[in-house]
Amino acid sequence: MKLIKSMTGYGVGRVKTDDGECLIEIKSLNNKYCDINIKNNFQSLEIEQKIEKLIKDRVLRGKVNILVKVENYGLTEEKIILNEDVADSSYKNLKALKEKYKLKDEISIDSMLKFRDIFTIVKEEETAKIWPLIEKTLNLALDSLLEMREKEGRALVTDIRKRVKKIQKLIDKTEKYAKSSPLDYQEKFLSKIKKLTEGLNVDEGRIELEAAIFAEKTDITEEITRLKSHLIQFDELLNSEESVGRKMDFLTQEINREVNTIGSKTSDIEVTSLVVLVKSELEKIREQARNIE
């Protein structure tokens, strides 16, 4: 079973063989995408591409910094390449010089070697030899990294789950006030109007209609319903085996939007206080969710 992981972690791997030794350190931090930065003590684009692919197969999100050190290993192979064009030109010049000045010495290999660039020494990385060593070490480092990310992820899930339950309780309290608030407002509004218009000829039906319209505008039943739905989805994400960090971030935005709407609709001091508490818990959840893969 896959576990929700944090994007923060550290891992190290070390493998030693008769041919050499490899040490790999990996650090990962929060990031919207999988951003990999590789530092090593050898030059091989092919190996760097293989390292990046292996990391992306196991890490979905995060800024990953990796340090690769290979010691006491034949990292390069030297090859001597003959530059035939330079050799031909050198020989022709030596021959022309001999004929022009009637030189008796024969043209020898020693004479040819005095010319530069006849032979070129090329160093080639032996990727086929060192990749198995790096691959084994990298997998050990990734195992260590993912173990730490899973441990951190469990702690984050525990904390978020606790705060989601707290928000659910606050929403339940808000719902109780929401059911009585419009009716209370309507009664208070009518009572005040009757006192102000006592002895005057007014259309009571119109007053009641205006009170009912305003009471409807302050009704937060729909927002409460959507909030409950979002919280159920959030709880499902906490039990998911997929990468849920982005989904959590989206849901926290939606929950925050509904809470803000409730705060703007009501003037009830009890509901306003509950809204403040919900936003406080939601902000803590958002900070935690941003660290989830």
Score class of each variant (00 low, 15 high):
6 S>G: 04
11 G>W: 13
18 D>V: 13
19 D>N: 11
19 D>H: 09
22 C>K: 04
25 E>K: 08
26 I>T: 07
26 I>D: 10
29 L>A: 07
31 N>P: 00
38 I>F: 06
38 I>C: 08
42 F>A: 05
42 F>T: 10
43 Q>H: 13
46 E>L: 14
49 Q>Y: 06
51 I>A: 05
52 E>Y: 06
55 I>C: 07
65 N>E: 15
72 N>A: 10
75 L>K: 14
75 L>G: 15
77 E>F: 05
77 E>D: 05
78 E>Q: 14
79 K>N: 13
80 I>D: 10
84 E>P: 00
87 A>P: 02
88 D>W: 00
91 Y>T: 09
92 K>N: 09
97 L>Y: 11
100 K>G: 06
103 L>F: 06
104 K>V: 14
107 I>W: 01
115 F>P: 00
116 R>D: 15
117 D>F: 09
118 I>M: 05
129 K>C: 04
130 I>N: 11
131 W>R: 03
132 P>E: 12
133 L>I: 02
133 L>E: 05
139 N>K: 04
143 D>R: 01
143 D>P: 02
147 E>N: 14
147 E>Y: 14
148 M>Q: 11
153 G>D: 00
156 L>R: 09
158 T>N: 12
161 R>V: 13
167 I>A: 06
172 D>I: 07
174 T>D: 12
177 Y>K: 03
177 Y>H: 14
184 D>R: 10
187 E>M: 02
188 K>R: 15
197 T>A: 10
198 E>Q: 12
202 V>G: 02
206 R>W: 08
207 I>M: 10
209 L>K: 08
210 E>H: 08
220 I>A: 13
228 K>H: 04
228 K>W: 05
229 S>N: 11
232 I>E: 13
237 L>Y: 15
239 N>T: 12
239 N>D: 13
244 V>S: 03
246 R>M: 04
248 M>T: 05
248 M>P: 00
251 L>A: 02
252 T>A: 13
259 V>S: 11
260 N>W: 05
264 S>K: 04
265 K>L: 02
266 T>C: 01
268 D>M: 01
271 V>P: 04
276 V>H: 06
277 L>W: 04
278 V>F: 00
280 S>H: 09
280 S>G: 12
284 K>M: 03
287 E>G: 01
287 E>N: 00
289 A>K: 03
291 N>E: 14
